[in-house]
């Protein structure tokens, strides 16, 4: 595997008022790597990935995505958002647009693709997540699992080089989790660089190159899955694993 550096975080700090949500985060992610981040709620794992596409602003340190440093400059933010796709816990599809329009909106208005081409590409990705037969329905007419797969297709339509997943299966009914995870596994096998915040440890074992455990704003442990599950070093990791496994 080539080791092209995609994301670099150096001494990143962030506070919400008094709360130190990110405390000296250092992280390097190479092209094609799949990182799973886990940790108790409030540990800063969502905030960490939301800093990568500037949905949250970090206050100290540097975040460099594909050679572009994230600053207040709106052009750098726009460039990075074009390269980074994101999938949310609550799907956040646009309820006033059909699934197809959800997927083709950004390619048309941000990438400036001709309408027909954008829709064709959207259909392609919808087929890949196996909901092309739902393309003309509205989000409210789909099940949770279908909505999340549509949301993944929407992110993929921008042809991002990095995908962020913020607890993509936490809001789903149990029987729908698998269909979403299957899509994510096939995406991982396709070589996408992925950062996934999740508690799905089966998924982590199967695809992660490295699992990061966070607590109280810090990266406590970062290891490959085998070592992570078999020999966790820190007490906090052990307690966490005993609670969720």
């Amino acid at each position: 595997m080539s080791s092209e550096l995609m994301i670099e975080m150096k001494n990143v700090h962030k506070w919400f008022g008094e709360l130190h949500v990110l405390n000296d985060i250092n992280l390097e992610i190479n092209k094609g790597e799949k990182i799973v981040i886990c940790g108790p709620s409030g540990s800063g794992k969502s905030t960490l990935i939301r800093c990568i596409n500037r949905l949250e602003e970090h206050q100290r340190g540097n975040i460099i995505v594909e050679g572009t440093e994230l600053t207040n400059d709106s052009r750098s933010i726009e460039r990075i958002r074009g390269e980074v796709g994101m999938v949310f816990q609550q799907f956040n599809l646009f309820p006033h647009l059909s699934i197809l329009d959800n997927c083709s909106l950004a390619p048309i208005w941000v990438r400036k693709l001709p309408k027909a081409e954008a829709k064709e590409k959207a259909m392609e990705y919808l087929k890949r997540v196996q909901i092309d037969d739902q393309a003309h329905k509205y989000p409210a007419q789909l099940s949770g699992g279908q909505q999340q797969r549509a949301a993944i297709a929407r992110a993929l339509c921008m042809e991002p080089r990095i995908m962020l997943f913020d607890e993509p299966t936490s809001a789903l009914d149990p029987e729908m989790i698998k269909e979403v995870l299957d899509v994510m596994v096939s995406l991982a096998q396709g070589g996408m660089t992925m950062i996934v915040v999740t508690h799905e440890m089966g998924f982590a074992k199967e695809v992660a190159d490295s699992i990061i455990f966070m607590d109280e704003g810090q990266i406590v442990e970062a290891k490959n899955p085998k070592d992570f599950f078999d020999n966790p070093e820190s007490e906090r990791t052990k307690t966490f694993l005993s609670q969720i496994l």
Binding site: G85, N92, W109
Partner: peptide, 8 residues
């Protein structure tokens, strides 16, 4: 957030 994330 979703609109910003797709780059609008």
């Amino acid at each position: 957030e979703a609109s910003q994330a797709v780059g609008l």
